[in-house]
């Protein structure tokens, strides 16, 4: 039930926003994430944006594979 999906904010009107995922548009609430801006990718859970998705930041997996940790050989 904590399932949440990333959506792109296309339009904002007060605390409501229009967000898009794969061509499907939905009205979402920005009540819990007032700092969201048009163009941001946000994580949406049950109709509410709860967090911004940092696109630039490399995922933890990529960091791990860049080899800071000792690389297993066998």
């Amino acid at each position: 039930m904590c399932l949440a999906v990333p959506m792109r904010v296309v339009d904002i009107n007060g605390s409501l926003a229009l967000a898009e995922l794969g061509g499907v548009r939905r009205e979402i609430s920005l009540e819990l994430l007032p700092e969201a801006r048009v163009g941001d990718h946000v994580i949406v859970h049950a109709g509410f944006a709860i967090s911004r998705l940092e696109r630039e930041e490399a995922s933890a997996i990529m960091e791990l594979l860049r080899g800071e940790s000792p690389a297993p050989v066998s």
């Binding site: 039930m1 904590c2 009540e31 819990l32 859970h45 049950a46 109709g47 509410f48």
Partner: peptide, 13 residues
């Protein structure tokens, strides 16, 4: 109203 910390804030709003 069930759910964890992910859901409760939206219910509160």
């Amino acid at each position: 109203a069930i759910g964890f910390e992910t859901t409760a804030p939206g219910v509160a709003a």
